[in-house]
Design a protein around this nucleic acid. Structure first.
Length: 153
DNA sequence: GCCAACGTTGGC
DNA sequence: GCCAACGTTGGC
């Protein structure tokens, strides 16, 4: 099993929205590296949910992969902001998995909180200039975050 | 609001 | 295929 991290702005799709929806198609990503990670996700992988840009910024909870990547329908929709004229149904460009809600942490782990944990110094999230909205997370990184979240209730 | 960092585009 | 210009991301 692998671990991942996804970013979302809480005013567009927060973890509370995911809790309400139970499952969502993680679509609208238009970056090739992020897409490649999305296509690598396997059923059962755990996904750290991160709220970016909008305060409070930080890690807010967990999701799980429940359906492996399939074509993002919005790429074919000329009315969608995610429309891609170069994508065809025979040769789609963008693929996304379904994620289901797992849990909301007792409190948000800020970037500084994450920095202060053991084994997180190599996390993609903390690297200078890192803008990827889908990132791989190692087992040790995940365990540090899991432990920090559990010690806060 | 600033701006560093990065990705994408397009002229050549 | 290079690379300058531009647009976007995202923390502060």
């Amino acid at each position: 099993m692998a671990y991942w991290l996804v970013k979302s702005e809480s005013n567009s799709y927060s973890i509370n929205d995911l809790e309400k929806d139970k499952v969502t198609h993680w679509n609208g990503v238009r970056n090739y590296q992020a897409r490649n990670y999305l296509r690598s996700m396997k059923n059962g992988d755990l996904v750290i949910y991160y709220h970016s840009v909008v305060d409070p910024i930080g890690i807010v909870g967990l999701a799980r992969v429940v359906k492996e990547a399939y074509p993002d329908p919005s790429q074919f929709d000329a009315k969608s902001e995610y429309f891609d004229p170069k994508a065809t149904k025979e040769n789609p460009r963008w693929f996304n998995p379904d994620l289901e809600f797992v849990e909301i942490f007792e409190s948000i782990l800020s970037l500084n909180d994450v920095r202060s944990l053991k084994n997180t110094d190599k996390m993609v999230l903390l690297q200078r200039g890192s803008r990827l909205s889908v990132q791989p997370v190692t087992t040790t990184e995940f365990q540090s975050i899991r432990k920090a979240a559990d010690s806060r209730d």
